[in-house]
Amino acid sequence: MKKYAFNEITLWQYIFLIFTSEIGIGVLPFPSNVARYAGTDNWISVILGWVLITAASLFIIQAMKRYPDGTLLDLLTNYGGKWAGIAGAIVVALYFAYFSYVVFSRTVIFVKAWLLPQTPELMLVITLIIPFWFIGRSGVRVHGRFAEFVVLICCWMPLIFIDVLRDAEWLHLLPVLKEGWGPVLEGTPEMVFTFLGFEMTFVLYPFLQNKNRAAFGVIAGNTLALLVYLLMDITCLVFYSPDEILQYNEPVISLLKVVEFPFVERFEIVFLALYLLLIALTWIPFTYCSIYSTSWMLGKPDHRPHLFVFLLLLVVSYVFYQPTFRANDKMIEWMGKFGLGFAIVFPFVLWLLVAAIDRYRRTKTG
């Protein structure tokens, strides 16, 4: 019997979990962030970032195929022993816990700045974690169903930006590579950070029903994120001037201020309120990956007590420290550095190690 058979997810749920985790907080500020490096050629950095994260995703799949019925922690234990598994559990738990905290604190900042400016941050934290508890206490299967639901009700949102293209100035994109490949390559690491989320494959892989489609699933999830990012990016580039786009922290939200409907005022507020569901699908799975690691390390199949402790610590942290926008930007900068190592470099190294160990074992037994 499969170890994770009771919590299996379908291919579409797998794709949507990866896709939604990649377009969480990153989609709102990334056009100006990458434009600071690559200017109006930053759409090329978007494509190069997609190439890198897709390659890393495929290395993850190839490594996980060596132990298809287990997560990364089971794989490390099988190849490196008990202590390798424990060390991996500690690293994975801290990595995803930090990512979850950074994304959650950014969510609180967004809500306070755009939706509820007069509400105390501690009250916002408690309000946000209550629905999160009901989803997070369940397993991966419920997370997959929630991802399907969110994608279904939010699939119209990218189409809104097509309306903005009526006022576009396409000459902003020309000439292509006006300053050469150097700025484009400098902006690529920023774009790789924006795509982070696909590394959840380390934990999600054994829950997938048909693991033969895992490679297709990560490519599909990454490509859906690529299409959304290209639409957002090109729309911002042709709407704002090359200098103007650098003046906005979240140019995507500012862009929505020109969208008008006769039946609703300030459409960007309605958009952001719904977009909170997509952001939740970034920090909810990240939190699950973290508490799964701590539960695995302690041999506890029930992750709910760990989730309760995590959420309690989250609330207590806001009693003593409430991150500002600038402090959160610094956290995100560190998050990008950690992500480049864990999500891009580590999958390749892991694949080389497990391949070498398998070859050594075959040689020794042969």
Rank of each mutant, 00 (worst) to 15 (best):
residue 209 Q to A: 12
residue 242 P to T: 15
residue 243 D to S: 09
residue 231 L to D: 02
residue 215 A to Q: 04
residue 249 N to D: 08
residue 229 Y to A: 01
residue 237 L to Q: 15
residue 249 N to F: 03
residue 248 Y to D: 05
residue 241 S to K: 01
residue 233 D to W: 12
residue 235 T to M: 04
residue 217 G to P: 14
residue 228 V to H: 02
residue 238 V to E: 11
residue 249 N to V: 00
residue 236 C to I: 14
residue 219 I to K: 02
residue 215 A to M: 08
residue 216 F to W: 11
residue 227 L to P: 05
residue 242 P to Y: 10
residue 239 F to R: 04
residue 212 N to E: 11
residue 231 L to Y: 05
residue 250 E to R: 00
residue 234 I to G: 06
residue 227 L to V: 06
residue 211 K to L: 10
residue 210 N to I: 02
residue 213 R to C: 10
residue 229 Y to D: 02
residue 217 G to E: 11
residue 221 G to R: 07
residue 236 C to D: 09
residue 227 L to T: 00
residue 229 Y to I: 11
residue 248 Y to H: 08
residue 247 Q to D: 07
residue 235 T to E: 07
residue 228 V to E: 01
residue 247 Q to S: 07
residue 208 L to Y: 05
residue 208 L to V: 06
residue 223 T to N: 15
residue 241 S to G: 12
residue 249 N to E: 10
residue 250 E to S: 01
residue 212 N to Y: 11
residue 208 L to G: 05
residue 242 P to D: 12
residue 213 R to M: 11
residue 218 V to F: 13
residue 235 T to D: 05
residue 218 V to M: 14
residue 230 L to N: 14
residue 246 L to M: 04
residue 211 K to I: 05
residue 226 L to T: 00
residue 251 P to G: 02
residue 230 L to W: 12
residue 221 G to L: 02
residue 241 S to D: 03
residue 222 N to T: 09
residue 248 Y to W: 13
residue 236 C to Q: 05
residue 246 L to D: 07
residue 237 L to M: 14
residue 220 A to T: 03
residue 227 L to A: 10
residue 244 E to I: 00
residue 223 T to K: 14
residue 244 E to Q: 06
residue 235 T to G: 01
residue 247 Q to W: 02
residue 249 N to T: 02
residue 250 E to G: 03
residue 213 R to N: 12
residue 247 Q to A: 12
residue 242 P to S: 14
residue 213 R to D: 15
residue 233 D to Q: 15
residue 235 T to S: 07
residue 216 F to T: 15
residue 215 A to P: 03
residue 242 P to L: 13
residue 211 K to A: 09
residue 219 I to M: 09
residue 219 I to F: 13
residue 235 T to L: 04
residue 247 Q to T: 04
residue 251 P to F: 02
residue 226 L to E: 07
residue 249 N to L: 07
residue 226 L to W: 14
residue 234 I to W: 09
residue 208 L to P: 13
residue 247 Q to H: 08
residue 252 V to I: 09
residue 241 S to Q: 00
residue 233 D to R: 13
residue 215 A to H: 04
residue 215 A to N: 06
residue 235 T to Q: 05
residue 235 T to P: 00
residue 218 V to N: 12
residue 217 G to A: 03
residue 228 V to S: 03
residue 241 S to W: 00
residue 240 Y to S: 05
residue 221 G to Y: 13
residue 212 N to F: 10
residue 245 I to C: 03
residue 247 Q to V: 00
residue 246 L to A: 03
residue 240 Y to R: 00
residue 229 Y to C: 02
residue 244 E to C: 10
residue 229 Y to W: 08
residue 243 D to T: 01
residue 225 A to Y: 08
residue 228 V to A: 06
residue 246 L to Q: 06
residue 244 E to A: 13
residue 214 A to F: 09
residue 216 F to V: 15
residue 210 N to Q: 03
